[in-house]
């Protein structure tokens, strides 16, 4: 009795979760589906249900499209400007209007949205820019934040804890407050229109990652440092040869989060990049969207291209991901 009630409950919960998760995933499926559709299929006639599976026209061995006319399939021999089609039906030539025929469809993918998007966006250049910025900022964050975190976690200097509170406080500061003076500063330095404003600050310690790494560094037993000191390590030696190798999981989390953030960052590139040769993928997509408002095929293709690496990355690094979020959330 109790058992069957439990089963019903479990089934109910699974049902709810299933429906919800479908709702969450549907936009992705729609994106993917649209990206592989022919232009003519992207906007279905009003009242038609959405088409999920991309299709292509059916052609015969001479490359002529097959259409449905009067309930039978026919070969489309070509159309006049008036919209009058010449059809080959059961070996006989007939004529039909545009709206009377319907091209036969089979499941198939249209890749041309992708090639179109690639051409229109200077994709490879954008990708290079994005990866360059990702690489520089990830490296900078890893190096600078870990060094600073070491200071806050493992060197007992006077005033340290007060300064650390300051580090945490800067995290709360909305970016808008420093936005304009920073822009003015970078203009004066002649950095606007270059990657420098997007990279240099990340080489000077990022508060969130300083915090994250500090929490991790603090878990390494103090005696390990003492042993290393007796073994002959300098302070930097302890950092580089003991703490860093032990903090690999936290460093991986840092790298991952930073990469993810930079890959999708919009505001900073929007403000500081001026030449479209410098655009990152995110900016390029937005620019492309604003210029081709209803080119949904290429737009979805591009969105897919930007999203897919992130999803793949997530599948390979799920544990690091979840742990990182948990770490930042609970020990805060």
């Amino acid at each position: 009795m109790a058992n069957s009630r439990k089963t019903v409950k479990t089934a109910l919960k699974l049902g709810i979760l299933g429906l919800l998760s479908i709702a969450f995933v549907l936009p992705f499926v729609w994106m993917l589906s649209t990206s592989f559709k022919h232009e003519s299929r992207i906007f279905p006639p009003p009242g038609q249900p959405p088409q999920w599976i991309p299709t292509t026209d059916v052609r015969d061995d001479q490359g002529r499209t097959l259409v449905k006319f009067d309930g039978k399939s026919a070969v489309d021999l070509g159309a006049e400007e008036t919209g009058r089609h010449h059809l080959l039906l059961d070996g006989k030539q007939v004529e039909a209007w545009d709206h009377e025929i319907e091209p036969l469809q089979q499941v198939g993918l249209h890749w041309e949205n992708y090639s179109k998007a690639f051409e229109m966006m200077d994709f490879w250049q954008n990708l290079r820019n994005t990866l360059f910025i990702c690489f520089c900022t990830v490296l900078g964050t890893l190096v600078s934040s870990s060094v600073v975190a070491y200071s806050f976690a493992r060197i007992p200097w006077r005033g340290r804890d007060a300064v650390f509170v300051l580090v945490l406080a800067t995290m709360m500061l909305p970016y808008q407050v420093t936005l304009i003076p920073l822009f003015a500063l970078y203009s004066k330095l002649g950095w606007v229109g270059s990657f420098k404003p997007l990279i240099v600050p990340y080489w000077l310690g990022v508060p969130f990652y300083i915090f994250l790494l500090r929490q991790f560094f603090k878990t390494v037993p103090e005696d390990l440092s003492a042993a290393a000191r007796i073994d002959g390590c300098s302070e930097f030696g302890i950092y580089a040869r003991i703490i860093l190798p032990l903090a690999k999981p936290a460093l991986a989390t840092t790298a991952l989060f930073m990469f993810l953030f930079q890959w999708g960052d919009f505001l900073n590139p929007l403000i500081y990049l001026q030449d479209d040769r410098q655009y990152t993928l995110a900016i390029a997509l937005q620019q492309f969207q604003s210029q081709h408002v209803s080119a949904w095929g290429p737009l979805m293709a591009m969105s897919t291209v930007i999203t897919l690496p992130i999803i793949v990355l997530f599948f390979f690094t799920q544990r690091t991901f979840i742990q990182g979020i948990t770490m930042s959330g609970l020990k805060g």
Binding site: A226, A227, R229, I230
Partner: peptide, 28 residues
């Protein structure tokens, strides 16, 4: 400490977790 020519054995062993036994002993 490194110039005092002393060696120390700790209560919680303080072995470097990321090094082999050999490397642990050789490190100094």
């Amino acid at each position: 400490p490194k110039n005092r020519d002393i060696a120390m054995v700790f209560q919680n062993y303080a072995l470097y977790p990321h090094m082999t036994v050999y490397k642990n002993m050789a490190f100094g």
